[in-house]
Simulated scan of single mutants.
Amino acid sequence: MARTRIAGITVGQAPRTDMTADLESRLAPTLELVQYGALDDLTASEVERDLAPEPGDEVLVSRMRDGSQVTFSGTKVLPLVQARIDQAEREGARAIIVLCTGSFPEMRHEVPLVYPQPLFHAVARTLASGRRVAVMVPEPSQVEQAKTWWGDHGVEVDVVSASPYAGIDGVRKTAATLRGSSDAFLCLDCMGFTTQMRDAAREASGLDVLLPRTLVASVVSELLG
């Protein structure tokens, strides 16, 4: 029996081999994940040259195909994301997941288009019941924008930073600084964080942990699986 095609669009390069197993573990066996990358046609040097954040731009962090990290403007990458949405729909996707917890405007689409950020924030707000939550973002330059985004969705946050693309040890070390805090739980605020990092952060911080990649895959599986 043919499986239903689900598109995963990373703002970096596809395939996101660091993400595939965690996503597929939450998808129903009737669903097939096909990945697309906004930066697939660019080199790292071209990303630095053409997509560098301007003052006031949203800062996004993602992964290139070779595993290296890149930082770029959320505004400048939008046309590339839209091109991949259009391609995924032409190729038969029944739903599309944008594999980034950044803030996105409404984009052109015909099938369900799932942005992790509003879903992630809504679940966290409900679970927190007015308490402050800890949030981990990849880069120090993202701390203030994270406070703004979460605050706009009604969640008080304590923000720390550690890149998922620099390995699990940094995640564990930063999570340990939250041990003994009064935060309700910890949100790993990037689709780059893995289930192994979630488990390490939980052990190091003593907090429960919410991971966006498995959350969003579970929701899509419930919808179409």
Rank of each mutant, 00 (worst) to 15 (best):
1 M>P: 08
5 R>I: 11
6 I>T: 03
6 I>M: 10
11 V>H: 05
12 G>V: 07
12 G>C: 09
13 Q>G: 12
27 L>D: 05
30 T>G: 11
32 E>P: 00
33 L>I: 04
33 L>W: 01
34 V>F: 02
35 Q>H: 08
36 Y>Q: 01
38 A>M: 08
40 D>G: 13
41 D>M: 11
42 L>A: 08
43 T>V: 04
44 A>W: 03
45 S>R: 14
49 R>P: 00
50 D>P: 06
50 D>V: 02
51 L>Y: 03
53 P>A: 00
56 G>Q: 04
60 L>G: 09
63 R>V: 12
63 R>H: 03
63 R>T: 12
65 R>S: 13
67 G>Y: 09
69 Q>I: 11
69 Q>H: 06
69 Q>V: 12
70 V>R: 03
73 S>I: 06
75 T>G: 09
79 P>Q: 14
79 P>K: 15
83 A>W: 02
87 Q>H: 13
87 Q>Y: 07
89 E>H: 08
93 A>M: 08
94 R>D: 03
100 C>P: 00
101 T>P: 10
103 S>A: 10
105 P>A: 11
106 E>F: 12
108 R>T: 14
108 R>M: 08
112 P>N: 09
112 P>G: 12
113 L>I: 10
113 L>A: 01
116 P>I: 10
117 Q>F: 14
121 H>P: 00
121 H>Q: 14
122 A>G: 15
123 V>R: 08
125 R>N: 10
129 S>T: 09
130 G>T: 11
130 G>F: 03
132 R>A: 15
133 V>G: 01
134 A>V: 00
136 M>K: 07
137 V>A: 11
139 E>A: 15
139 E>S: 15
150 W>E: 06
151 G>Q: 12
152 D>K: 15
157 V>F: 02
162 A>H: 06
164 P>K: 09
168 I>C: 10
169 D>L: 09
170 G>H: 11
173 K>N: 12
173 K>P: 00
174 T>I: 13
182 S>F: 05
188 L>N: 06
198 R>T: 10
200 A>M: 08
203 E>G: 04
203 E>Q: 15
204 A>Y: 08
206 G>S: 06
208 D>Y: 12
209 V>L: 05
216 V>F: 04
218 S>H: 02
218 S>P: 00
220 V>C: 04
220 V>L: 03
221 S>L: 07
222 E>A: 15
